[in-house]
Design a protein around this nucleic acid. Structure first.
Lengths: 143, 143
DNA sequence: AATATTGATTAGAACAATTCCAATTCTCAC
DNA sequence: GTGAGAATTGGAATTGTTCTAATCAATATT
């Protein structure tokens, strides 16, 4: 869907150490897993995907790594209703489209101008740092 | 903030019975509580607010009532990150502004045209039934 | 009006996602 | 190499919500 959504320009190792954090094998593996399969997995899903490569890793560590990666802006959280938090390495401004039929989440690039227009609808004393936009609907996939 | 955000035009009793549901004292009380204090309370908060008026009501019932009211479109759910679901009787198309400082949630009316513009940024085979827009930021409240 | 049928409420148990905790292990600076 | 702080680990604890089974209420049927 999204061809070459941006990756943090710095290496993850640099990004981590710039934040005073260590580039551990667990953190790098979790990050690589997210890059490899960009389908907004949950922590449990990441855990399942990387267990074979690092059988000793624990779910708690996966949660810790994901949180760390979010903190140093290498990945983002995606929440919908109250289901499990999902993670995404696409750092460009984008919205999420939730396919009600398949449950899949698709990234949708957003024109910066629209985001600005949205922010400008706010009362003067409201200063938004972030706008989150989530579509809910269906696709015509004839696949 | 919002002066006269719309209320369902039908009475809650009618709206409920139209959906084949009963207008019980619990459901009406929960609904009245949401209308009275429009600050997007959680289920627990609603429970705390109405306990004095109906001391025998249970938290499970509050959850049940809220779900029922959502189902027959008298109220809406508001979720943010993974914190408790909040409830809101404002049925007009609007966005939510989360004040990072106070934790308050404010309704922000949205021009329908912007919502349409947003939907039009979607690939042709994506059909959105709903768009959720959430701002995160601060306010200049000198209060 | 009594009774059956179905719907709603209740309290507490169960559950899922996540966080906490205390112990161990690792890494880097010296 | 040693010591101090960071990170990982497994399991327990927590939180918000849903489930369950029993009771209660309301409407429909006779």
């Amino acid at each position: 869907m999204i061809e070459h959504a941006s990756i943090a320009s710095d290496s993850p190792a640099k990004r981590l150490s710039d934040s005073g954090l260590r580039a551990t094998p667990q953190r790098e593996l979790v990050y690589r897993s997210l890059l490899q399969q960009r389908d907004h997995p949950t922590a449990e899903e990441v855990f399942a995907r990387i267990k074979s490569e690092m059988p000793t890793i624990s779910l708690a560590t996966v949660y810790n790594c994901l949180e760390t990666l979010v903190q140093c802006h290498l990945i983002r959280q995606v929440n919908h209703e109250r289901s499990s938090t999902r993670y995404c390495p696409n750092l460009r401004p984008h919205a999420h489209f939730h396919d009600e039929t398949t449950g899949e989440i698709h990234d949708v690039d957003l024109p910066a101008s629209l985001v600005e227009q949205l922010k400008s609808t706010l009362p003067a004393d409201f200063h938004a740092s972030t706008v989150e936009i989530t579509f809910l609907g269906k696709t015509d996939k004839t696949a």
